[in-house]
Computed example of a mutant assay.
Amino acid sequence: MQPMVEFCINRLTSDVEEIKDELEEDPEVDVLESACLGNCEICAETPYAMVDGEIVTGENGKELLKNIRKTIKDQQKKLDDLLDLL
């Protein structure tokens, strides 16, 4: 199962748009644009995305991308650890 990264179109500044475009080129990640993700307070304050339903933020686009990649890696590790238990 591939990670899903969702972006609110109301927060697609040029730096966030670049991140979205970069992630869309990654065959290991599904990217979705939504009219609203229901996190308007966060959306108004900082660049953010949702990774498999988890809110990920950053001070700027570069930090947001770093945090998205880290969240994907952390979620994959949790899944791998769970599968090891089975």
Rank of each mutant, 00 (worst) to 15 (best):
M1E: 12
Q2A: 13
P3E: 06
V5Q: 06
V5R: 01
V5H: 01
F7Y: 01
F7S: 01
C8V: 00
I9T: 10
N10S: 15
R11N: 07
L12H: 00
T13V: 03
D15Y: 06
D15A: 08
E17C: 04
E17P: 03
I19K: 00
K20G: 05
K20C: 08
D21K: 14
E22R: 12
E24I: 01
E25L: 06
D26G: 05
P27F: 02
D30L: 04
V31P: 06
L32D: 14
L32K: 14
S34I: 05
L37F: 01
L37R: 02
G38S: 02
N39C: 13
C40I: 01
I42A: 11
C43K: 00
C43Q: 00
C43D: 00
A44S: 15
A44E: 12
E45G: 15
E45S: 15
E45T: 11
P47F: 01
M50G: 06
G53S: 02
G53F: 02
E54S: 09
E54V: 10
I55L: 08
V56E: 02
G58N: 07
G58K: 04
G58L: 04
E59N: 11
N60K: 07
N60C: 08
G61A: 03
L64H: 08
N67W: 09
I68G: 07
R69Q: 12
I72D: 04
K73Y: 13
D74F: 11
Q75G: 12
Q76D: 14
Q76F: 10
Q76V: 10
Q76I: 09
K77L: 15
K77N: 11
L79I: 14
D80R: 15
L82S: 10
L82N: 13
L83W: 10
L83N: 14
D84I: 07
L85G: 09
L86K: 13
L86P: 06
